[in-house]
């Protein structure tokens, strides 16, 4: 499997909304904790170490 960096989420605006909504009302620490849990849950779902390594590399490039 290779890391998919093409559009893959249906209704991107709706998803983005949900992502922000999950953080609403949280202070910085609680928001950071939510992000960390979310990253761990998604990483586990992906599972493939190659893909995860590529994702880390893609995210590290700014």
């Amino acid at each position: 499997m290779t890391l998919n960096l093409s559009p893959n989420i249906a209704d991107p605006d709706g998803f983005y909304d949900e992502l922000l909504a999950a953080h609403e009302g949280l202070d910085k620490a609680a928001s950071d904790a939510l992000n960390a849990r979310l990253i761990l849950i998604l990483c586990n779902h992906i599972g493939d170490r190659e893909v995860l390594r590529d994702a880390l590399a893609a995210a590290s490039k700014t």
């Binding site: 620490a29 950071d32 904790a33 960390a36 849990r37 990253i39 761990l40 849950i41």
Partner: peptide
């Protein structure tokens, strides 16, 4: 620390 506690939480 945030990741550590996220792991424990989950």
């Amino acid at each position: 620390m945030t990741f550590r506690n996220a792991v424990l939480d989950l």
